[in-house]
């Protein structure tokens, strides 16, 4: 197992955000982290990235507990791509990507560091834009520069926090395909927090559904994405189909073009809303 998260718990003050989260992502696997707003996706990604310190629980990479690593060592093992990277100062794409080498070099980047940077830029298809200023890039290009930065960091684990949320369809698909390709080629473990269920089903090998700080399901897209769970988590009446071997999730529409949401879900005859108290959001239980 490459990335292994065990009993990870995180609190903001007295509010519990993550409650004993446990899951594994194998090497070469691309795992989607799903869940509604406020379910703790972003917090989980940041806790694994070392941005937040968890209250308890362990994160291991290739068998090494990351809590035993120093800051720089940790940064050489786990890479993180934030949702967006708004810099208040202008810098070129190359300058932005070399930031990923921060945990690797001393005072100045070496020839090898620059080679890694150039390689990451080429992989992300930014070769012609390396000298451009970041502020001139489109949203999709800027997002690819952030991923290139994480690639230059050369880590065993790649974490992405909703990198596709602000992108148009083409860049969403390109980004996901690139990450999947890199994951397979490099044999790294990738975890992506994402909102689009169908993208997750199509491009990821594994799906973890987070709800109120708990993991509800964890498995292949077919195993993890079933209609009752999704209705329960998102409070939207959905139907799940298998289309050409890929799971597809759609809101169920009645003859008036209306989809049941929120508390209306309870009136469904086939809702299967089996409400185990343990599944109730931690935030609600307090």
């Amino acid at each position: 197992m490459s990335l292994s998260v065990t009993d990870l718990t995180f609190r903001y003050g007295r509010r519990q955000i993550l409650d004993e989260v446990t899951f594994d992502v194998a090497s070469g696997q691309f795992c989607a982290l799903l869940g509604p707003n406020g379910s703790g996706k972003s917090t989980l990604v940041k806790a694994i990235a070392g941005v937040h310190r968890p209250a308890s629980g362990t994160v291991t990479v290739d068998g090494t507990d990351t809590a035993t690593l120093g800051r720089r060592e940790h940064a050489r093992v786990v890479g993180y791509v934030p949702q967006h990277g708004d810099a208040p100062f202008d810098l070129t794409v190359r300058e932005a990507v070399v930031l990923g080498r921060t945990p690797h070099f001393g005072l100045a980047p070496t020839t090898q560091d620059w080679a890694m940077v150039e390689d990451a830029i080429e992989r992300m298809g930014l070769g012609d834009l390396a000298e451009r200023s970041m502020s001139e890039l489109s949203g999709g290009q800027a997002q690819r520069a952030l991923i290139a930065r994480a690639l230059a960091q050369d880590t065993r684990v790649l974490l992405l926090d909703e990198p596709t949320s602000a992108l148009d369809l083409r860049y969403q698909i390109e980004t996901l395909q690139l990450v999947r390709q890199i994951t397979r080629e490099q044999g790294i473990s990738a975890l992506i927090a994402i909102h689009d269920l169908n993208h997750a089903a199509r491009y990821c090998d594994q799906v973890v559904v987070l709800h109120g700080g708990h993991i509800l399901t964890d498995g292949t897209p077919q195993e993890a994405l079933d209609a009752p769970t999704l209705r329960d988590v998102y409070e939207v009446d959905v139907e799940v189909h298998l289309r050409e071997g890929v799971v597809e999730v759609r809101p169920r529409i009645d003859e008036h073009g209306y989809t049941l949401t929120g508390s209306q879900i309870g009136s469904l005859a086939d809702a299967h809303v089996a409400f185990d108290p343990a599944d109730e959001p931690v935030g609600a239980r307090r």
């Binding site: 786990v78 990277g85 100062f89």
Partner: peptide, 22 residues
Amino acid sequence: WFSKDLNAVAFAGDDAARSFGV
């Protein structure tokens, strides 16, 4: 001596800088 870390904070933000080990 700290200019590299300053780059990380100024250009990438606090969260990303932490993920670079700063």
